[in-house]
């Protein structure tokens, strides 16, 4: 099946572009070239923490990795360990039971760290605003560098947000230059 599929792809006409809008991708890549390379050397590792979401944001976050959006083409990838991460991406409200864990994840990360709050819940509590079980949005847990609104935001918006984060934030410039041994 795998080989047949590969073969079919080799001999078939090039398929209609199944990626997101090619112009948008090109623009994003250009911006990344300008902003990302000097700061990151083309790699940015993201640690995701769900601090009280409905799992809708997680679905769209996973969708950024599919064949259409292919997040890694921009040098962005998810990492299981906060120790390897440059970005802390928070989804969901600041659920009372998750505040301590989210703070621990932040503390485990090496500075400088960019914090991105994704989805309406992480922005300000979203529809759950005012519930006694939550402390608010992600800012109730830690300072946030960028908010991406939406319920849930679409994959293209999430990628836009991640790249915007690289562009506008200079704190990563403070990172010590890595000298190859």
């Amino acid at each position: 099946m795998v080989w047949k599929t590969l073969l079919r792809h080799c001999i078939a006409q090039p398929a209609a572009p199944r990626r997101q809008d090619p112009a948008a991708v090109a623009a994003l890549r250009q911006r990344l070239a300008a902003a990302g390379h000097e700061k990151l050397g083309r790699s940015l590792a993201i640690r995701h923490v769900a601090a009280g979401s409905c799992n809708g944001c997680e679905l769209e976050l996973r969708a950024t990795q599919n064949l259409i959006y292919d997040l890694t083409q921009y040098g962005l990838s998810f990492t299981p360990s906060p120790r390897h991460a440059d970005v802390l991406l928070i989804t969901g409200v600041a659920g009372g039971n998750m505040i301590a864990a989210a703070r621990q994840a932040r503390e485990a990360m090496a500075d400088p760290v960019l914090v991105l709050a994704m989805g309406d819940c992480a922005v300000d509590g979203g529809v759950f605003k005012g519930s006694p079980a939550i402390a608010g949005g992600a800012e109730a847990i830690m300072p946030v560098d960028l908010f991406v609104a939406g319920c849930p935001p679409e994959p293209a918006q999430i990628i836009e947000g991640l790249l915007a984060l690289l562009e506008v934030n200079d704190i990563l410039l403070a990172r010590p230059v890595r000298v190859p041994r």
Binding site: G52, A101, G130, S131, A133
Partner: peptide
């Protein structure tokens, strides 16, 4: 219980 948001009360 980590995702508890008080949905029903809302």
């Amino acid at each position: 219980g980590y995702s508890h948001k008080g949905t029903l009360a809302l």
